[in-house]
Amino acid sequence: MSGSILGRCSSMCPDKERRFREKEGLLHPFEIVESQKNVKKPEADPQKIIKCYSRSGAGKSMVHDLTQLRPGPVLLSTLRYLFTQIVTRSDVDWAVIYNFVFDRLRAVRQDLIIQRLDVSTTIKILEPIVRFHVYAAQRLCDRSLEDFVPKFNNQHLLECIKELLVKYDERDLESSNLFCSNRAQIETLYLLLYLGESATIERALKLPAEYRKSPTMKMAVKISLAWYVRNYVQVCRAIVKLPPLLAMAAMINLPRIRRDTLQVMSSAYNSTQLCYSGEDLRKLLLYKSTEQLHAECRNFGLDIINENICFQKCKFKVHEREGKLQKAFPDEMLHLFLPKIILN
């Protein structure tokens, strides 16, 4: 590519960084030599240490030393290592795994951007990163903000998926009518992540026919349109029929769906005498337990009478923040989805 920069680092971490981090004791437990775990300043395992993310300082060029940049093939092998050897570990808290991988992925993207790698390589790098962030949103949704910050994860997810869509469009200009199953999945993820947004629906409807005819894309379009017209019942019923990764993407919207549904029902079922079946509402809004439903209803100012919900428009806290996303899949099932769900 004209004007591109080609890195010369042939390993997952440049030697200069490895020596510096060994000297300063900045190695992650995942990166040290196995026999030196209890040493104060252990050595790095060259097969395990991975370049970490660093901000560019004022006036500091990130391309002054090409030996610090990893070329496309090395970035791809780094991703494969992270997604087969690290995220699949079951002996460590997955929040620890996430924070390590999150940082190393930022460094991968940094090298990618600096070198302005070709469209094909960029797509191969960003696709699994998008899946990782979607997966993490579900896997860690019940953790404290000290372990996992949904806002940061969603921010990086949005950046990656938008850049990926740009690269798909660029590839279309180079070779039209080239169907790709990975793209079909990512385009569907984008639609489900941003339900009801006119721009995402418009993009989906303008895709080449091969993508629009995909069964999952058809279902995603119906879900997004149902959200757009505020048919939340149809949205919830359809989400559970999606394949696991697509369901995880759609469920990022679940707190908003629940809040809006409860607000609508507070007007539609407004009464001081009658109540709505708590069990029916639990199933409708995909709550895993009655306790979760009751806690959220109370959060919005609704009363619980004999485990049923008393909707009163005047009591609903319109400006109350939406609730937290609740895990839809048990950890054991989520773990089984790896690494296939990311490296698809």
Rank of each mutant, 00 (worst) to 15 (best):
I113M: 06
L189M: 07
L191H: 00
I129V: 06
T88H: 12
H294I: 11
V318Q: 14
I114T: 00
R212Y: 10
L245M: 11
L343E: 14
K241S: 14
E332T: 04
I257L: 15
R143D: 14
L178F: 15
C310Q: 15
R212D: 05
L189A: 07
F316S: 08
E307Y: 02
F30H: 07
I123H: 00
C275L: 10
E187W: 12
W227N: 14
P29R: 04
C236R: 00
M265H: 03
F30V: 04
N270F: 10
L6T: 03
R256Q: 11
I341M: 13
C9G: 04
Q47L: 14
F102P: 07
Q85V: 05
Q185E: 09
Q326P: 01
A107G: 01
S35A: 14
G323D: 14
R183M: 10
L165E: 06
T216R: 02
K206C: 14
Q312E: 15
K317H: 06
K23I: 00
R143S: 06
L343W: 07
P29G: 02
S11Y: 13
I309P: 02
C297Q: 04
L242C: 07
F102N: 05
M219W: 03
E24K: 07
A199T: 03
F83S: 04
E197V: 06
S198F: 15
H319A: 11
T78P: 13
P208V: 06
C52F: 09
I161F: 14
